[in-house]
């Protein structure tokens, strides 16, 4: 199985030892999401300080792709400004793990890869729109999340 386009060393390693795995008690943003057909189910926790992501964790159950992508996403956004995170695109996440091909080759597994990003976009939307009452800053994140896959 060498050269497997999905189950690379990196994906297997992350699925065995996910980064930022755990819960943030009383997090500023908590967002649950799941893929009903495959059983991936995660919670994403974010703390916001000074308009930056000061801490991020996730927990839940999912396949190797979901675990690896959630790990890498949390690594990539930690410390970033909310403005930058709002602009975060799915290609950035997929290319980090060499999974760009999934968009074309596996419409089912792409959902596993992007579940945490969907939770992130919804989470930040609700932070701005509901918690801060700042609909303008929330922008169209909700639509982006809904149309992610």
């Amino acid at each position: 199985m060498s050269g497997d386009p999905i189950y690379t060393e990196m994906i297997i390693e992350y699925s065995r030892n996910p980064s930022n795995y755990g819960k943030i008690e009383d997090a500023h943003i908590t967002r649950h999401d799941s893929n009903p057909l495959c059983g991936d189910s995660i919670d994403l926790y974010l703390n916001i300080d000074d308009k930056k992501i000061s801490d991020v964790k996730f927990d839940g159950k999912g396949c190797a792709i979901c675990m690896a992508c959630s790990s890498v996403l949390t690594e990539m956004i930690k410390g970033k400004s909310l403005e930058d995170v709002k602009k975060f695109e799915k290609d950035e996440l997929l290319s980090e793990l060499g999974l760009e091909h999934l968009i074309k080759t596996s419409p089912v597994r792409i959902k596993c890869a992007l579940l945490s990003l969907k939770a992130l976009k919804y989470g930040i939307y609700s932070y701005f729109a509901e918690k801060m009452n700042d609909v303008e800053s929330a922008g169209n994140l909700k639509e982006e999340a809904a149309n992610l896959y």
Binding site: Y7, C38, D40, K61, C63, A64, I65, C112
Partner: peptide, 22 residues
């Protein structure tokens, strides 16, 4: 402890069609 979706994806490469999920 391999998630069923990963099992199903890997054995699908061998032509084996099983169901994974709930």
């Amino acid at each position: 402890d391999v998630h069923p979706h990963d099992v199903a994806t890997i054995i699908d490469k061998n032509g084996v069609a099983i169901r994974s999920g709930h």
